[in-house]
Nucleic acid binder design. Structure first.
Lengths: 256, 256
DNA sequence: CGTAAAATTGACTGACTTCAAATTCGGTGG
DNA sequence: CCACCGAATTTGAAGTCAGTCAATTTTACG
């Protein structure tokens, strides 16, 4: 039995969420050359803002893209987890506007830019799937703008936890209401645009309200409905949207 | 002399900022079929979250993508101006997670999804340019997360004004330190994640500090260096990456 | 003019920050 | 197994930035 972080399977799983992959496309993905690299928390996945000759697939652990401000504070732009592609813009377009580092210990697979490009031009379906995945992350970022822009501290926190729960569940890492989250409160604060102190108090108040339960790097959400209501969390933006434009029009859009 | 909103020239100009376009690609763009549509402020560019059979190029005026919260507040996700493509995800991927409406009176060109797809598959350079443009908007959104997450009211406001100034200048609409901005203070508040009342006070304090000057839908920035310093604005993320701005060689300025 | 939208102002409130100290936790070596 | 250390968490007290509520003035425009 192969260890969970020994193949690019997590990437396949992630792409398959939003796109239908052909068998040959899956195989092409899985036979990509890559280098497995274990990393400690705080390891930089990319050097500052430089372009790169490779991209990464996160196989295990959490990472985050972020920006630092002159006053030393930082804002996390996205949380990356198993299966997420890191740095495609950087290697396809030579653009990058933020840093990326591991939030926890973990493992990445590094893939040569040339290999990725070859793969994408050989398989238009994969190319499309990867772009789709990138738009998906764009949708998450949009929701983050709403989160930091318009929600109270407890709603922000609740929303973030809901998002991470659903994404964990989608990757087969526990269920949405019970999953590993070994981030520090300072990390969470940098996601939510709050201070670590206030995260601490807010976490406690959610706990006291019976909306969450926390313990040793693990989050439990005993009252999913309550938390989503309080946080204004609408799963829609994370929902898998398979069956896109194709030969046969599928008009079966299941509403709420 | 053709009116400024009679052709897709603004789109060409925008794409040319970040990509080198071949002569034939420019021509292909300019010969795209489109329908010119004048719109009043508040007009919806797309119906809610539905997929669409067309996308738009904003020819004139300001528009914004936004989300509404249950409590009635709203958060603007991006400000769109002349030359910006609106709704490509919607028509290429049938995904959309937010509404789009005009903030001011203006004009859009609507383009059939099929035409756009045909164009993109016929000209890989254009396809790449359009993706690049979409990543560019992603970079702006990242900066917005930082803005609402970690900056004070005056820095948020200053940063927003700097961004809009530079983007205006890039599109040949006035200079970065003097441009049209007919947004209401409520609009600006929805961008910055603040209340209209506080935008009003902050605007006044920036004015009193000599950092901006405002009058009838127009912003002037008498002290660009001062405003950027106060706001922590680093132009880098807006800079054209493909060295080539043929239309008008602007004053070169290397940031500190 | 007359009206509605937008901008402006004031007084008050409160959510979140700041600063600082105490406690707990996880790991490591004795 | 226990002592120890730095990191992370937790708690308290005080301060402030921005929100809320509500009224007034200005502007845009038919």
């Amino acid at each position: 039995m192969p260890r969970s972080d020994a193949t690019l399977e997590p990437l396949v799983r992630k792409l398959a969420l939003h796109s239908d992959l052909l068998r040959e496309e899956r195989e092409a993905l899985l036979s990509l050359r890559f280098e497995r690299r274990p990393l400690r928390a705080h390891a930089q996945l990319f050097r500052g803002v430089d372009p790169a000759l490779h991209c990464c697939v996160l196989l295990d652990g959490y990472a985050a893209g972020y920006k630092l401000l002159r006053d030393g504070s930082r804002q996390i732009l996205n949380v990356l987890m198993r299966g997420d592609l890191v740095g495609i813009q950087r290697c396809l377009f030579q653009r990058a506007d933020h840093e990326v580092e591991m939030l926890t210990d973990g493992t990445v697979a590094t893939i040569a830019a040339a290999d990725l490009q070859a793969l994408m031009s050989a398989h238009s379906g994969l190319s499309r799937a990867i772009w789709s995945e990138s738009l998906f992350h764009g949708a998450i970022q949009s929701e983050w703008i709403v989160n930091v822009g318009r929600r109270s501290a407890s709603a922000r926190l609740g929303h973030l936890l809901c998002e991470l729960g659903v994404r964990n569940e989608q990757q087969g890492l526990g269920s949405r209401d019970q999953f590993e989250l070994p981030l520090t409160q300072a990390n969470i604060a940098d996601c939510a645009g709050l201070t670590a102190v206030h995260i601490n108090r807010t976490l406690r108040s959610l706990d006291e309200a019976g909306l969450i339960r926390r313990g040793r790097g693990r989050v439990t959400i005993p009252d999913w409905a309550g938390l989503t209501r309080m946080a204004g969390f609408d799963e829609q933006y994370l929902k898998p949207k398979r069956a896109e434009v194709s030969v046969s029009p599928r008009h079966q859009q299941q509403g709420a």
